[in-house]
Design a protein around this nucleic acid. Structure first.
Lengths: 132, 132
DNA sequence: TAACGCTATGTAATAATATAACATTTACAT
DNA sequence: ATGTAAATGTTATATTATTACATAGCGTTA
């Protein structure tokens, strides 16, 4: 279980926006949407994003440069993330599968490297787009 | 086995550079390095990169915005990639593990989505950095 | 060969994403 | 009240990637 954390003003504004969004949000789209609340500069957004990622409230979808609220209450603070991404409608959802996360968290290869974090992105067509 | 493909002039120049590099290369570092060979504009680099990715000669390390030559002769043309990344020295290597790729290629969750591609990035400390 | 389609190239401009550097303020434990 | 860590504000700039348009090469086939 992750430590409860009080969000600062900017962090809260930005988290709320991302959390309400049905799809991953881009940094500059976030910026545009929070300008009326007084957040005027990219850096203010990126700082909040960094912190929110650090405490596990959001994740970055690396292949899309976009940010999504954590949909997985048991996720190990951003250390073990998996997403499914529809290449047609760009719908993204977080995969919560304990077998998968157990498999990957315990994965070790011949390099002798100990992994403390991973990110996995699956791509395909979602049900809707497949049937079109 | 992937179809043998003749590379065009720019594609060859850029692939050779990436292939010789001991570490992933950034697009603008590639650009800088090939300017003496007549490749002057970012777009020329990005076009070659896109093509090289498409035919599976290189991969993009999404979390680093960097490009690496495919180290895995049996990789399914960029459709199934896994990397280990040292967060200290930034060394990156491609993971070639048939159990892992089989597991992930066959992975299916409850969404009913059929995945045709995935990318996995592991993070940790490599042997050298761990012992420091 | 000429016309076509496809891939690749060249070039300029600009869009989109992200960080550096510096000054100030807030929260809060001692 | 003072020290300290976290957060904020602001300007400028760095880095990554794409749009738009024009041209060239190359194989197919009419």
């Amino acid at each position: 279980m992750q430590k409860q954390q009080t969000l600062s003003r900017n962090q809260k504004i930005i988290f709320d926006l991302i959390d309400k969004s049905p799809e991953p949000m881009k940094a500059y789209s976030i910026l545009f949407n929070v300008q009326k609340k007084g957040i005027k500069a990219p850096l203010q957004v990126y700082r909040a994003l960094d912190k929110l990622i650090e405490i596990g409230k959001i994740h970055k979808i690396e292949s899309r440069n976009a940010f999504i609220a954590c949909q997985n209450s048991s996720c190990q603070i951003s250390k073990a993330t998996a997403f499914s991404i529809c290449e047609s409608c760009e719908n993204v959802s977080e995969i919560s599968n304990s077998k998968l996360s157990k498999y990957l968290s315990n994965f070790a290869d011949m390099s002798g490297m100990k992994y403390n974090k991973y990110n996995l992105e699956f791509f395909g067509l979602c049900k809707k787009c497949k049937s079109k």
